[in-house]
Simulated scan of single mutants.
Amino acid sequence: MVNSTMVTEFLLLGSPDGANMSFLYFMVFLLTYLGTFLWNLLIVTVTTADKNLHIPMYFFLRNLSILDMCFISITVPNACVNSLTGNRAISVAGCATQIFLVIFCACVELLFLTIMAWDRYLAICQPLQYPTIMNPQFCVRMTLVSLLSSLVYAGVHTGNTFQLSFCRSNVVHQFFCDLPSLLKLSCSDTTRNKFLILLSAVVVWGGCFFLIVMSYICIFSTVLKFHSRESGKAFSTCTPHILVVSIFLSSATGVYLRQSATSDTLQDVVLSAFYTMVPPFLNPLIYSLRNKQVKEAVRRVIGIQLCSGK
């Protein structure tokens, strides 16, 4: 990696409005991070402590919350430190690690959301076969497959990126290292890298999106045959997942398929912040506010803690 580049370190973007706004950016990043971490930690605690939530749907919701805590921890704490200290430097190895982990978490999140859509399809459209198919062993295997395939996916993209030469500049116009920003800095031919991003977006992201859409087409066609009360209950379990998928896919698409030549620095920062910070922040809020079982479980767990405290 060191031999393939003339750059020994990269400089991340500081506060776009100068030093006067650094503290404001620090507070925004810090509050978003703490809110995200605490909300997701609450979901993990509740889905673990409440035995009523020990079902496949909440098994993947717990995994999603753990993943979101890791996802936002990759970029935001470092951005907070940079805003306070003004030290924008990050080593080439550190930049490669950050890119690898961001891609890995994004891919795992997409696969988890796809599995959760299929889980809802089985629960609503094939309820008799649901316990047989979605058993604990199958859930664990699907989790391991998601993690291992995402490792390969992230490794391919990261390896291809750091085979390039970076000799134009070492200033990354982002608050963290990401693929589009680094491709702009390369003095090598990046056609293959851009083609790989497009191909993976079509095959992996497009394939998952297709499976999610097909799952919900089958779900809605089945739900419309129910009575009004049963259909409302089915929709209430699907709505949070639809919102989460929409937020995540729209923000990720905006980051990786935007036109580099026409996007300015501020637009890049806003899109990347939305992609890495907003979905992890909103996921637990959407699931806890829209899901009666989660809200009731939160009350039970908090009530138990209060009683034990007395």
Rank of each mutant, 00 (worst) to 15 (best):
L101I: 01
C208K: 05
A273K: 13
Q259S: 12
F209E: 13
L282E: 06
I99M: 14
S83Q: 07
M116Q: 06
V156R: 13
I247T: 11
R300V: 14
S169Q: 08
E230S: 13
F71D: 08
N82V: 14
L113K: 11
L182P: 02
D178K: 02
H54K: 15
P280N: 06
G232C: 00
V202T: 05
P284W: 00
K310C: 09
R168L: 02
T222Q: 15
V102Q: 12
V203D: 04
I90K: 08
L182N: 01
I103W: 10
L289S: 13
Y33F: 15
L61P: 02
V270G: 09
A154D: 09
C208R: 05
Y256M: 09
L224N: 10
K194L: 10
R299S: 14
Q174E: 14
N3W: 04
L84K: 07
R62I: 02
P240H: 00
A106W: 07
P131I: 02
S200F: 09
L13A: 11
Y256D: 09
L266A: 14
A297K: 05
E230I: 11
V145W: 06
I286E: 04
L282M: 13
I72K: 11
V202P: 02
F176W: 05
S146G: 09
F10P: 09
A79Y: 02
A234E: 04
L185G: 01
A261F: 10
T191G: 11
L243Y: 01
I103P: 07
V270Y: 07
I124P: 00
V301N: 04
P240Q: 02
L144Y: 06
Q137G: 13
S169Y: 01
N52D: 15
G303A: 03
V81C: 05
M1R: 06
R88H: 14
A273Q: 13
S4T: 09
N283G: 08
L42G: 02
Q174P: 00
N82T: 14
M116G: 00
N3G: 12
A297M: 04
S146M: 06
L12H: 08
S272E: 07
K51P: 03
N82C: 13
T262S: 11
D264C: 04
K184A: 05
T190H: 01
I74R: 03
T48S: 04
V7C: 07
L289R: 08
C125L: 11
L147W: 12
